[in-house]
Design a protein around this nucleic acid. Structure first.
Lengths: 221, 221
DNA sequence: GTCTATAGATAGATAGAC
DNA sequence: GTCTATCTATCTATAGAC
């Protein structure tokens, strides 16, 4: 077994299981995100790694399991980001805004993740359903939202009758749509929702929307 | 040429161009929505119509053009619904709520449309880009939003600095996500966003969110 | 307009030597 | 663990008779 830091042998091939697996996952992520599950080609993935198609089957078993592994790793990244979030010191309004921005930023920075989730929905979430890893991954964001909501509702600051799951759906909707439907929206309405110059505008808009909804005066109207 | 009302001949085959085209489009819509572009099978589409594969190529030219035709028809349906919308007699708040509900109801009733749009985004909206029909279809909803926004902003009722395209994106986000991401969201968070018993809840939530955003008190906070 | 039959290309997956 | 070669199935698309 070669050490992790040892460079690949001069022939260009790899002799490190973990590294080979990781490289396959990297390329597979790109290829699945690019072309969809059925559109992705195992040959193409193999060609773009420093290993061969045989190794993909050796390590993952098949195309289906490879896609599941790709999904698991992508979800792991956002779950980790959620776990690192610290909003304990903020008031409920600032805390919710911070959380919304985390989702906004992550979706913006990981369009491949958005496409993988989209593809998984086309296939009825069957890979998630079959993954023990994803089942026990949980959602740190939900726990955070739950705590903020409680605090805000107790103090009377938040007037909306909403729970953590629905609020998470509301925040995700905006962040997800913006990236996922970028192409059809742009083609039909002539506006690129992901253009850099508009990022701050939409980031603010999302926070304004969520806060307005949570704190709206429900005695009037 | 047989007349439109004449029933199909006893052998089960059709001899009416318009009807054959329509039947192919119906089945193709289902098949593309079910399996994605690359997952869809031309053989499967042919088998489920009363015509043959040869006729699909005869009428549409190929799989790619068939998908474009399917998209064109699906977008046509929602554009027609938007055109039938009459909110001239309503005040801006009620009018926006009505428009949001139209989008909500349409997306809920047409999950196939949502899947087709999703699939088209995976493919970078290339079929929309290549369709003159879709290019000149416009968006009646945008015109309606534009008029409502003007009226609401003039009267001082709407305080948000937002234009019609962005508001349309906000409304569509929520309606689209709820249907499009139903499977992954349900698998990960244990909540079915499209369950019948929750429909009114989300329909109200959408309206509340949009109105709260548009009318929020922006002098405070 | 409709049929059967098939061309032509390519996919996922595996055998078996090293 | 890695390689080359290949099997088997299947897909889009078309030829050509009627």
């Amino acid at each position: 077994m070669t050490s992790v830091d040892e460079p690949a042998p001069p022939n260009g091939r790899i002799r490190d299981a973990a590294r080979t697996r990781a490289e396959i996952l990297d390329v597979a992520t790109q290829e699945f995100a690019r072309a969809g599950y059925d559109g992705a080609r195992v040959d193409e993935i193999a060609a773009r790694t420093r290993t061969t198609k045989r190794m993909i089957y050796y390590y993952f078993g098949g195309k289906e399991q490879l896609f599941t592994a790709v999904l698991e790793r992508s979800y792991g990244v956002i779950r980790e980001a959620e776990q690192r979030l610290d909003v304990e010191h903020l008031d409920p309004v600032a805390a919710i805004r911070r959380l919304a921005e985390l989702t906004f930023d992550h979706h913006e920075r990981h369009p491949d993740f958005i496409r993988l989730v989209t593809i998984e929905n086309i296939h009825g979430a069957e890979h998630i359903a079959g993954s023990a890893k994803l089942a026990k991954m949980g959602s740190p964001a939900l726990d955070v939202i739950r705590r903020i909501l409680e605090s805000g509702q107790e103090s009377g600051l938040f007037t909306a009758d909403v729970d953590a799951v629905d609020l998470h759906a509301m925040i995700s909707s905006f962040c997800f749509f913006r990236v996922a439907n970028r192409h059809t929206f742009g083609a039909l309405f002539g506006r690129d929702l992901v253009e850099t110059g508009r990022r701050e505008h939409y980031r603010t808009m999302l926070g304004d929307m969520v806060i307005a909804y949570l704190t709206a005066d429900r005695t009037a109207g």
